[in-house]
Computed example of a mutant assay.
Amino acid sequence: MQNLKTVVMASRPNFLILSFSVVLMASAIANFQGFSWSWGLFAMTTLGAVLAHAAVNLLNEFQDNQSGLDFITVKTPFSGGSGALQLNPQAAESVWNSFKVIVMALILLGLLFVYLKGWQILPIGIVGLAVIALYTSKITKSPLMCLIAPGLAFGPLMVMGSYFVLTGEISFLVLSLSMVPFFLVNNLLLLNQVPDLQADKKVGRNNILMKFGVARSMYIFSVFVVLALAIFLVSIRYFDLPNITLLGLIGFALAVPMILIVLKDHDNLEKLMPALGMNVIINILIPALIALGLWLA
C-alpha cells in the first residue's frame, strides 16, 4: 500500500488536470466545427492524454532519483520533484514498473486509435512516446529541445492528436490554437527550472537558463506569453471565431502580474513563488476558457 501511494505521488496527480484541459479544448473545437463524436472516444482520448502525462512524470521521478537530483533540489509546490521516492526509496522498482505498464497501455490505446481512425495518428503517437522516453535522459541536456519539448507535447501533439481521434481529420484551426498551449507549457517548465538551476547543473543538465542566464531567459518567457496571446487573437480574427471565445483573455490577464514578477524578482525564490503558482493556473485556465467559449458558441 505504501508503494502504491508513492507511485501515485510520483505521477504528480495535481498537475494531470492540464492534460484534461488541453483535450477539452480540442473537443470544443471539434464540436464548434459541427463534428459528431462520441463521449466514449472523448473518454479514451482523455485517458490517453492523462496516462501520457503520468508516464513522463513517473519516468522523470525515477531517473531523477537515480541521478540524485531530487535529493538536492529546493522543493516547492511546483518544482523540485514530488519527493515521493526520497520518502520511500524502496518503491523505485514499483515506479519503474508502473511506468512500463502505462507505456504498454498507451501503445495499445494508440493501436486502437489507428484501427478506429487511420494510420495518420501514428506519427503523432511515435513522437509523443519519444518525448516521454527521452525527456529526462536526453532532452534536458539540449537547451533548445528542453525549451520547446514540453510545449510540443502538450500543444501540437496532444491537441492535434485528440482532435484527430475525435474527428478523423486535421484542421488549420486546431494547429493554430495548439500553439497557445505550446508557448504556455514551454513557459511552465522554463519557470519551474529556476529554483532547480544549481541542482540541475550538478547532474549535467543544460537548459536555456544555463545558456543565456536567468535574467535573459525571463525575457524569452515574456515573449512566449506575448506570442501565445498574439496567436490566440490572430486565430480568432483569421478563422472568424465568435467573440465569446475572447473568454481566454481572462487567463491572459493573470499573465501581466506574473511577467512583472519574473522580470523583477527572478533571483528571489520567495518573491518568485506567486509567479510559479500563476503560471500553473494560466496553463490550465486558458485552454479551458477557450474550450468554454467555443462550447457556448
Rank of each mutant, 00 (worst) to 15 (best):
S79G: 02
N192G: 09
P195D: 04
I29Y: 02
Y115S: 12
L190T: 11
L189I: 14
L157E: 00
N283K: 05
N65R: 14
L263M: 07
F221N: 06
N60V: 08
W295N: 04
N206H: 15
P287D: 08
G155A: 11
N268P: 00
N60M: 12
E61F: 09
S21D: 04
G80Y: 13
G251R: 07
L166H: 00
V50A: 08
S162P: 00
Y219D: 11
K202W: 02
L294T: 05
L296Q: 09
H53I: 14
L109H: 02
S67C: 06
G83Y: 08
F221C: 05
T140M: 12
L260Y: 10
L233R: 07
G48Q: 06
A288R: 01
L152N: 06
L116I: 12
L147E: 10
K100R: 15
M104H: 03
E93V: 14
W96T: 03
G161S: 01
V234K: 08
M44I: 15
I220G: 06
M145G: 08
Y238M: 12
D200Q: 07
R237P: 00
M25F: 09
S98E: 06
A255W: 03
F212I: 13
P242I: 05
T45R: 00
G168K: 02
Y163D: 06
L24W: 10
G110W: 00
I282W: 07
G48P: 01
L272W: 07
I236Y: 04
I72N: 10
F232W: 03
V223F: 13
V127G: 03
L129C: 09
I139W: 02
N283T: 05
W39R: 10
L166P: 00
E270A: 13
F154A: 10
A288G: 03
W119C: 03
L272E: 09
L157D: 02
F78Q: 11
N60D: 14
I236V: 15
A297D: 01
G83L: 10
P89Q: 08
F154W: 02
F239D: 09
P123L: 08
N88V: 12
A105K: 02
I170T: 12
V23M: 08
L112P: 00
L229A: 13
L247W: 06
M160K: 02
D70Q: 05
L229D: 05
Q66C: 11
L246D: 04
V8E: 02
V95A: 10
L59H: 09
K117N: 01
P156A: 13
N88P: 04
F113Q: 10
F182T: 11
A43G: 10
N206V: 05
Q66T: 11
N65V: 08
Y238L: 15
L166C: 01
F224S: 14
V194L: 13
L134K: 11
M179Y: 11
M1A: 10
G168N: 08
P257Q: 06
W39G: 14
N207K: 13
Y219I: 14
V203D: 01
L134M: 14
V114A: 03
F78D: 05
H53Q: 15
N279F: 04
L189W: 09
L47A: 13
V22Q: 03
T76H: 04
S171T: 15
M104G: 15
I124R: 00
